[in-house]
Design a protein around this nucleic acid. Structure first.
Lengths: 190, 190, 190, 190
DNA sequence: GATGAATGAGACTTCATTCAT
DNA sequence: GATGAATGAAGTCTCATTCAT
């Protein structure tokens, strides 16, 4: 239970994400995770109390590292659109470069492992974005409708973009990225 | 002799969808399905060869019945925006009234049960929408970018709308619906 | 439980014997028997209380009909060798023409279905042969050793002959039969 | 780490043979085997992929170890009768001391577990005996009839001898053995 | 701490038996 | 009586977890 070898934990996380992407939460076993991580089954239990603990810990790590990247280079002091654009790009980038993670979070959301509390925590990481959107509405730059729907358009579209990019092996050029941003922007702008 | 109860199959499907929504594909057992459907475990195996067969059959049914509703009342002869609006509403409606189904399909997509062929079939059901969008581009009504991205915005947003509606127990009034459609339309329109 | 249709019972017996030959007692199910017999599963239980009853009844039938053929045309009044030859031929003939039956009896002998009493009954059907051999010993025509060993040679060889005949699809001509009888006779004769 | 206990495999084999003798292939379950072998059910599956694999592996082991004893002390350079006597005694001895094994092989022969290939392998182990008999025929010591029938007498009688010995709890003295050998020899000798 | 064999509860599945038609 | 769908106990097998090394 003493996470001595930080590197080994990362191997376990990576293994889990890979396997979940390949065959879903329903398709992984602790033995598979151990094998993929290059360790013995018993070793898993040195680092995680049990399967649920592993899934929950990973869920938490995913949320935290997602959150930190979503708002990197984001400066609330900048004009709205610049901030929005920054975050939009960050999320797209994260979803694509950490596609495993997105699948994992999606699968966890409907699973016997994740408790309500963790789900709330997931929602919280979008709070800075929420505030930015509120500000955009106040500045009359974007439509004055419930923030949840503005977020739906933005986040929903990003999720779909990431999936299509990965499933169809598309290379996301900056032209494509900007075109997609434009779609989103035209949708929400006042 | 007791004739094979075709209705029983529907009970099994319903039970499976309910359980998957509650605890994910990873969280269901054949016993749970049987109990939820109000039958004996063995009876499941009269109707489905095994768990995989049940999941696949249900996946197929979901796809088919989704497809049939997506394009109900859609008349390709009508103006583009009317057709698009009809389909948009249909999909939202289906996603919300059959939320179980959406979760199930999402979970199946990354699972050890569904084969590549079924995934392709899922993508095919959007073909009429694809053609409509192509037409919209030709009529210069919507942006001239790759259809996949236009679909991303539309479908991604709808998925998100459905999730938020269900998670937060929101009542979708026609005002909300129309506001959301406006977001989408403004996003894609030329 | 009322054996109304005698013909149906025979179909069930035939089906069981065929299936046991093909895949052993370990490999048959009541459903397989029913299907092979061309009846419904439930119908089996009209004629036999349960699986054990079916096996036991069939075992009994096999024993009885075997016994009746083993000694057909056998007349204790005839000279020893003639009687012995008659019985030897009868047994060979039965084993070959009812090969299924032999396999079934062999498999039953080590099975959870047959009780000790039935096994004793099986041994009893050889009693007339036993008496004949005792007589042969008294007449100094055959070796004066324990009858069980004389029977071993005779019965053991016959079993083997039947198996080889069936496994290798050999046509038993009267030359072959007589050569084999000679082997047996030379073995036991004084 | 606990190293894989090769001896455990032997325990499993022994347990299986004991149980099959007691209640036939049809009467054993993996639980019974595990319990008899003094291990947990799951452990069985560490050593054998499934039930079929266990049965097949054991069948193979039985064949191999049988074969090795059948021809121990047999020297093809010795006179025919000496060689034949040696093998005859070896087979009798094996059948009696490993009666479980004989029953198991017999039951396997008509079972859903054993494939044709294994059956062929079983027949192959008698090949040296076959050659010896061919030689006996060439030396005009034994009857000039198809070897299969000479083997029938020998092997069939031995099987019967072993069964009677075991069923009736007979002690096989060397007098009895020699008397039985004499029966066989008189049967096949020219 | 690391290992992987061992465990046994519980999952999937079968099948003897029952029962509604 | 005949049927075959339905049942659920029991069998096969898996897998989260433990433990001896």
């Amino acid at each position: 239970m003493k996470p001595r070898d930080e590197n080994k934990i990362n191997e376990i996380y990576k293994a889990t994400l890979n396997l979940v992407k390949a065959s879903g939460l329903a398709g992984i076993t602790m033995q598979m995770v151990a094998k993929e991580a290059g360790i013995a089954t018993g070793t898993l239990y040195i680092y995680f109390k049990n399967k649920e603990a592993l899934i929950n810990a990973l869920f938490d790590v995913c949320i935290r590292s997602s959150a930190s990247t979503f708002f990197s280079n984001y400066d609330p002091a900048q004009p709205f659109k610049i901030g929005f654009h920054t975050i939009w790009l960050n999320i797209v980038h994260r979803r694509v470069t950490h596609f495993n993670e997105s699948i994992f979070i999606e699968q966890c959301f409907h699973s016997p492992f994740i408790d309500e509390e963790s789900k709330v925590r997931l929602r919280k990481i979008f709070e800075p974005l929420l505030h930015l959107i509120e500000r955009g509405k106040k500045e009359h730059l974007i439509k004055d409708i419930d923030t949840t729907w503005l977020l739906s358009l933005m986040v929903g579209a990003i999720n779909e973009i990431a999936k299509r990019t990965m499933y169809y092996h598309i290379k996301l050029t900056s032209e494509i990225l900007e075109a997609n941003f434009q779609l989103c922007w035209d949708g929400i702008k006042a």
